[in-house]
């Protein structure tokens, strides 16, 4: 894959950005996410997570299935604030 391939379309993160972070010592998906914003956009990592995990596995010389997949934050699919204005428990 070309090093200027886009890994995270939501946050414009390139493969070369991921590789630079891994070269600097990052070892997990959660670290890559926090320091590159990869996976923080509207799709919440649906495209990039498996690509980044494959790159981490290659970099560390271990199998993808032996990596921590990284945290999934709710609500999972984006929801407008307005959807929460009715119902729920009154505060």
């Amino acid at each position: 894959m070309s090093s200027d391939a886009i890994i995270c379309r939501c946050e414009d993160v390139l493969l070369s950005d991921i590789r630079r972070l891994l070269d600097s010592g990052l070892t997990t998906f959660d670290e890559v996410k926090k320091f590159s914003r990869c996976g923080m956009g509207p799709c919440q990592g649906r495209t990039c997570r498996s690509l980044v995990l494959a790159e981490i596995a290659r970099h560390r010389g271990i199998r993808v299935q032996d990596l921590e997949p990284g945290r999934f934050r709710p609500p999972g699919k984006s929801i407008p604030i307005s959807a929460f204005l009715e119902g729920g428990e009154e505060q």
């Binding site: 509207p42 609500p75 407008p80 204005l85 729920g88 505060q91």
Partner: peptide, 26 residues
């Protein structure tokens, strides 16, 4: 999930024009 309801109601009083914005993560 109660937090999402509580914060949405409070923010809709202070910044009513942003209630169409989508929540990504909590």
């Amino acid at each position: 999930w109660q937090f999402l309801f509580a914060v949405s109601k409070k923010i809709s009083r202070l910044l009513p024009d942003i209630t169409g914005v989508r929540i990504l993560r909590q």
